[in-house]
Design a protein around this nucleic acid. Structure first.
Lengths: 213, 213
DNA sequence: TAGATTGTTAATCGATTAACAATC
DNA sequence: TAGATTGTTAATCGATTAACAATC
């Protein structure tokens, strides 16, 4: 099965290619070569071709890749051609920042596929926060999670809860059927094999940078 | 030169090992085996040994790695044994969230080395923001950057500015001599070879997750 | 057709894992 | 000593790069 075989790092690069194409204005019908795209992305032309080749033949020999077509293909592969509902769990400092950031400017960028991720619900357990409005959205109690996930067909959760409760909250959210997470808490979380937890952890990022001081 | 040869991914794992050791309480004089640590980190015992081996011989055959000693070594390697000053450039939604988050709870965690990163200054160009207090720190104007970087010996900058100006701001900060960055803006940034820019980009994270929808 | 660049295979490189001798 | 686990080399695996035939 293709999904199993494609390395994560390739998907990451596809997302980068798409962004690079979106960041720039291209004429209708313009072509871009693997060398040009590679230059932008900081990878070799061969790698660009190989990455794209895994998903089909998008180019024209002797010419390059038609930008519009390539963009559409990438948008399709990354499934950002229709909006997906996401939720933010934990409306503290970081959670509400992301809530405001992503509701104002969905997924933080412009272009087609820019509105691919829509913050559809916010959750917390703190009775003071529940009922408040953040970024135009009412904060719900975590107890209502399951119902809202079904109702809004939420597929992705951003975890912005304190580290000590992150595992517990993850377990709870997993039970509602969500399988895709971005965790911002500085802890390693355990999850079933069919659940994917990406880490976006400033603390780890800083500790790594320490080495290069 | 060792620094050049050690793969980034090893450094990332060392930071993970350190966190795992910090997250747990260990008796004085307790040992941990490469299998136990590997289990926690989700890597093979061989990899744990190889990673550590790159920096010295920290273990005792037949017994394992003395936890206190290993922790101290990792703290030393990652240079989190003494606090480093960092700055946050861009005091918008995300920047002020990190400012509050990191000043309250330095580097987002507990234990030795937890106070390794100290937010020493905040910068913005918006006259409304300059002079305001965020997380107990006064926001300075970007024009004062160079002076403050020297004064406070700032080594790392978190970039939380809008995507369209990120490159321009990076260039400006690089000029003051800072060589280590975490960029939160959803753009790929160009920097000289001796400058390291780690990306912590929610938008890219989400776009990647799209593939697994 | 000549020039260029893709698609794809084969060669290279580097990182992970296995295995085992050294030794606590 | 016997048992266990490190330190380290050798084997494996996978990803990147080089090369080139196909073809626009």
């Amino acid at each position: 099965m293709r999904t199993t075989k494609t390395p994560d790092v390739v998907i990451r690069r596809l997302a980068t290619y798409l962004r690079l194409l979106e960041e720039r204005e291209y004429y209708l019908g313009q072509y871009i070569s693997s060398s040009e795209l590679g230059e932008l992305a900081g990878v070799t032309p061969a790698q660009v071709r190989k990455d794209l080749d895994m998903f089909g033949e998008f180019g024209k020999q002797g010419v390059g890749y038609p930008v519009r077509h390539l963009k559409r293909q990438l948008i399709h592969i990354l499934k950002v051609d229709k909006p997906s509902n996401i939720t933010i769990v934990g409306v503290g400092e970081l959670g509400s920042a992301f809530a405001r950031y992503l509701t104002r400017n969905p997924s933080g960028r412009r272009g087609e596929g820019a509105d691919a991720f829509r913050v559809a619900a916010l959750f917390d357990v703190d009775p003071i926060k529940v009922g408040q409005c953040v970024g135009g959205l009412r904060v719900d109690h975590l107890d209502d999670l399951e119902a809202r996930v079904k109702e809004m067909d939420i597929k992705i959760a951003l975890l912005t809860v304190p580290a000590p409760v992150a595992q517990e909250v993850l377990d709870r959210v997993v039970k509602t059927g969500i399988k895709l997470f971005v965790n911002f808490a500085p802890v390693r979380l355990k999850a079933p094999d069919d659940v994917r937890v990406n880490h976006a952890d400033v603390s780890l990022e800083l500790h790594q940078l320490g080495y290069y001081l």
